[in-house]
Simulated assay, not measured.
Amino acid sequence: MPAPLKLHQLRAFVDVARQGSIRAASRLSGLSQPALTKAIQELELAVGARLFIRGQQGVRMTDIGDNFFRHASLVLEELRVAQEEIQQRLGLAGGQVNIGVGGSIARTVMPQVITQFHREYPRVKVRIVEGQLVSMVPELRQGELDFTINTYDQSHLDQELSYEQVMTREYRVVVRKGHPMAKARSLQEMQHCDWTMPTRKGSYYRLLHDLFAERGMAPNIVVTCETFMACISLVAQSDFVSILSEDVINDAVLGSQLQAVELDEPLPLAQFYLIQRKDTSLTPMGAYMAQLFRRYCQQS
């Protein structure tokens, strides 16, 4: 009969896997290197397989270790959530809520939600990750993010996640004020421009690539911006062209140097969803924050 797994062994394994070395994990956890090494050796003995390969530059996971990491990190996250839920139900409103938001959400709805949430629950810590859904899926699967508010591509549906539509937004072609193509009337006219767009792996922007392809167009996307602010700054201070949410263009600060191009052809609407794991319940604090996002998305 295999030896039972112990919680401290799982924590040691996950810490070392995330840090890439026993030394770094030791600094993070406050445990000695010999204690971490012993815990991992005991864990490897219990599971009957090597989880790490040691090298001069640190450690790397074996294939078995990589698969085991996904399970171990989810177990630890589920235990954290369970512990926080008990504390929150007892009225000891502490713990942490971890959320992901798309770039336009971060600059429109999110500040209102976080302000109200913090006012009501000042002891609850909040971690916010900004980006497109594709970059958040691993953390959603492992339970490191409670949920995200983002767009997604229905043709690439992840069966482990649930999707609840909360908002629809218009996107527009955008240039700097005074841009020579500011009065263009069609996408075809702007095909020769230098474009900057987020990665096509992002759900809404994959939709745009499909739209261009259907019309036999191939915009000259010479710069791929992985961050929202990089895209805005580049468009505002150069002749690059992009496509951004109407919320951003109308923002008093962010949109002050931007201008929407009045095209005769509308762009696809962006559907925003509250996305989370199907098999995991949110803590009371996480559920309340999700409800705030629903409310403010409907009002905006």
Rank of each mutant, 00 (worst) to 15 (best):
I105A: 08
P180E: 12
A236I: 00
P4K: 06
Q9Y: 02
F147S: 07
A25D: 02
P180Q: 11
F52K: 02
F272M: 13
V222A: 12
S245V: 01
I243F: 13
S186R: 09
A24L: 00
Q9P: 00
I232T: 10
L36F: 06
D194Q: 15
D251V: 01
Q188N: 09
D15E: 14
G20L: 02
Q154C: 01
R277N: 05
I40C: 03
K177S: 07
S26M: 00
E164S: 00
C193P: 04
F293Y: 15
I64T: 14
I243R: 09
A17I: 02
S155V: 09
C193F: 09
L161I: 00
K125Y: 07
N67S: 14
T168M: 10
V124E: 09
L267Q: 11
N67D: 15
Q271D: 11
M285I: 10
M181R: 11
C225I: 04
L234V: 08
L74M: 05
A3C: 08
Q299H: 01
L10E: 03
R54E: 04
M110W: 06
V129M: 11
Q19F: 00
L211R: 04
G131A: 12
H71Y: 06
R294L: 06
I249K: 02
P219Y: 10
R60K: 07
V14C: 02
R27T: 09
H71E: 12
S242H: 05
L157K: 02
T148F: 02
